[in-house]
Write a protein that binds this DNA or RNA. Structure first.
Lengths: 231, 231
DNA sequence: AAATAAAACTGATCTATATCATATTCTTTG
DNA sequence: CAAAGAATATGATATAGATCAGTTTTATTT
């Protein structure tokens, strides 16, 4: 039976595929000439839901959370890593505002591409547009998975999910320094900070992970994976 | 301040925008010649998550739920009404399976368009591709809203949401015959059937709705809206 | 129309997880 | 380096909503 792919859900969107490969020299030049590079510090906002979406944001360095503003709680849609675009879903007829907010977890570097130029390139280069569709749809899968995870799994499953995700898709290592606070993890998993702490303790007590300060090591990958799958 | 649009979330995707307007006569002819019309009865599956996605599905008549298969519970991503496409998110490089399942709520008519032909049209007609991007992104907003609703609102808010959504976006009337069972509503709102029944009773007792058999009438729209917003 | 099945409803109980209150450790800053 | 402020941790309590176990109503089949 085919693995339908929603068992191990992950927040990080980290595709190797770039849509820019399909652009011609002259098209790339247009982008080069119209982009602006901006540096952000940890914790800063790089775009704000509801504000005018004048640019597509290319994250060239850093780690960013993409989220819906909510009262009282925000909802994180995904974590975006370097090499990815932010703001694509804003591109549709009759819309000119950002559909979500984004803020940096770490110091980040961003390239702003004028949205009208981006739209024009889509409307002129069908191969490029096809790639953009690909990227959008890969995002969609990712977000569907996260949607399923947050609505159907319980605390242990959700936290196991995120930890595995960070290890596999961001740090490419079972041992890493966590750039997120317990509070960040709580926001990310849709649980309270206290619950994050408690579940982390459970994982530690059961010998699934080891921690010291910001360092985390996933010791029992097999078991963590099972917890993530079972929920 | 701009309304960020996630207050009254709705499951129904019901855009008036069609991507087909951008196709030329000859391109439309290619689709006409390669499409197949299929009838479905109420409750039947029109596509299955994980199976080979050979077609893009155009819903020409009926009401359909689009959902992720889950254990033990499914997760409904959206309700699709006539005039909309199902299966678009399956289109991305390296993928050839359906990302979700779809099943009919009512008897429905569907047109199947060969996915390779659809992909080819995207890659050849940039205006068409741009429209497809528009449609995908409108879907995305919809699903983000629903995501927010299911993770942040509680029972009364979620049920109020769905009832308003059915009234406004499907029946265009505050009085309508509900084609869904309490069980369907439960699946749709991510609550238990018993809770749906209890909350419906609350709404009735508080004079917000009137019901008799399958008929529902939203009497106090203002209040329902407030409940939906407050959560 | 009687029999059966399915859906709708009701009440009692249970549980996962949030919230609150407080303590401890770590980090920043004057 | 002391003091203030975050972040982390822990225990007690509260609660939204699920689950279970039934009953009543509605729909379907023979």
């Amino acid at each position: 039976m085919h693995n339908t792919g929603y068992t191990n859900t992950c927040t990080v969107y980290n595709s190797k595929l770039s849509c820019f490969e399909e652009l011609t020299e002259s098209e790339l030049k247009i982008i080069e000439e119209n982009k602006v590079v901006v540096n952000y510090h940890k914790g800063e906002n790089i775009c704000k839901q509801g504000s005018f979406a004048s640019h597509i944001i290319y994250l060239s360095e850093g780690l960013v959370k993409v989220y819906l503003e909510g009262n009282p709680k925000n909802l994180i849609l995904k974590i975006s890593t370097s090499g990815n675009l932010i703001g694509l879903p804003s591109i549709y007829e009759g819309n000119n505002i950002f559909l979500y907010s984004a803020a940096t977890y770490t110091n980040s570097v961003v390239e702003l591409i004028d949205i009208n130029i981006f739209k024009q390139l889509i409307q002129e280069n069908a191969k490029f547009a096809y790639r953009v569709i690909s990227v959008l749809n890969e995002h969609a899968v990712q977000i569907y998975g996260r949607f399923y995870c947050l609505t159907n799994k319980q605390l242990h499953g959700r936290l196991a999910d995120i930890l595995l995700c960070l290890a596999q898709r961001i740090f490419y290592d079972m041992e890493f320094d966590l750039p997120l606070s317990r509070n960040d993890l709580a926001e990310l998993t849709g649980m309270s900070t206290e619950s994050v702490i408690r579940v982390m303790k459970d994982f530690k007590d059961d010998g699934l992970i080891e921690t010291s300060g910001k360092a985390i090591k996933i010791v029992n990958y097999e078991m963590m994976n099972r917890i993530s799958e079972v929920g």
